[in-house]
Write a protein that binds this DNA or RNA. Structure first.
Length: 310
DNA sequence: AGAAATGATTCGGC
DNA sequence: GCCGAATCATTTCT
């Protein structure tokens, strides 16, 4: 009588209860999980310990924007923050794993004990374990998700160049200003000139572009404010020009490129007194540069400063 | 602390 | 693809 009742109860259990919510949504959230896993792996958070993956990812991402060579500090900062995240991720993950297995054994023991008083089929145990694992893995998925978010935030913080802007060195701005004011009639450096300037200033070509873009627009917006600066640099170039006239060799020691930094006939030769009158008269300073932008092909030096001939 | 300066980004036009 | 313009985010000056 007793075994018969037992088997009946087993059958009932088989058809109801735990069997209903079974291997279903397991597949549905898989793609997302895979994506998260891949992302974490790519960022160097998951996967092998202390891999170069993180650094590689950073350098790959930053190389497109162009960074100054002193970015190693930021990189180490980024790496330390990333390893912090990784540590948290791994310890949490381990904790969950441990908790999961502990809970599983606990439940198994319970079921084993219960099996003395009621029918507990091995399939029921299996399902129970599966449910527990699913629950814990969903928690782990949440952890993965938030870790991903943290990494993304970290990346955006470190990769957004505006956040870690550094002023250029004094020497660099000097070089750029010299070029700008000696080519005030047409302050659009050619590709070669940009590269040369970038080399001289230890910055990237795109930074040179940014600088000239900013300079042009800010100069045009407020010419008066830049008058003094213009005078200073005009003086400098004038001095360089006279020096180059005196000596047979050109003092453009840096000149491996195809442009000259001197524009002597833009300077009127009046000393920059503190008077109101503008001393320096770069040809077209009325803001109408546009239109006289020389095409990129015209990079031949010598015919550099051909301003307002009429 | 607030203003000014400055380098970088975004967007629309050509 | 470059440029001007507007804007953002940070640094430097006051």
């Amino acid at each position: 009588m007793k075994p018969a009742l037992f088997s009946v109860l087993c059958e009932i259990k088989e058809k109801t209860g735990l069997s209903m919510r079974n291997a279903q949504e397991e597949e549905s959230q898989d793609p997302q999980l895979v994506r998260l896993d891949n992302m974490l792996l790519a960022e160097g958070v998951a996967g092998p310990e202390k891999g170069g993956g993180a650094a590689a990812a950073v350098s790959a991402a930053t190389s497109s924007g162009g960074m100054s060579p002193d970015s190693s500090l930021e990189h180490s900062d980024y790496k330390s923050k990333l390893s912090q995240i990784r540590n948290i991720y791994h310890t949490e993950m381990e904790k969950y794993d441990q908790a999961c297995s502990e809970f599983t054994t606990h439940v198994m023991n319970l079921l084993r004990e219960q099996s003395r008083t009621r029918p507990v089929s091995p399939r029921e145990i299996e399902r129970m374990v599966a449910i527990i694992h699913r629950k814990f893995s969903s928690i782990q998925t949440q952890l993965k998700q938030s870790t991903c978010e943290a990494v993304m935030i970290l990346r955006s913080r470190f990769l957004d160049a505006r956040r870690k802007r550094r002023n250029f060195s004094k020497q660099a701005t000097e070089v750029l200003n010299e070029y700008f004011y000696s080519h005030l009639a047409n302050p659009y450096p050619s590709e070669e000139a940009k590269e040369e300037l970038a080399k001289q200033c230890s910055i990237t070509v795109s930074q040179v572009c940014n600088w000239f873009g900013n300079k042009r627009i800010r100069y045009k917006k407020n010419i008066g404010k830049f008058q003094e600066e213009a005078n200073i640099y005009a003086m400098k170039t004038a001095i360089v020009a006279t020096q180059s006239e005196d000596s047979p060799h050109t003092p453009n020691s840096t000149g491996s490129g195809g442009f000259s930094l001197t524009g002597p006939d833009l300077f009127l030769g009046v000393p920059p007194m503190n008077g109101e009158q503008p001393v320096y008269m770069g040809a077209q300073t009325n803001g109408n540069w546009q239109g006289q932008n020389t095409p990129p092909s015209a990079t031949s030096p010598g015919n550099d400063h051909s301003e307002e001939s009429d």
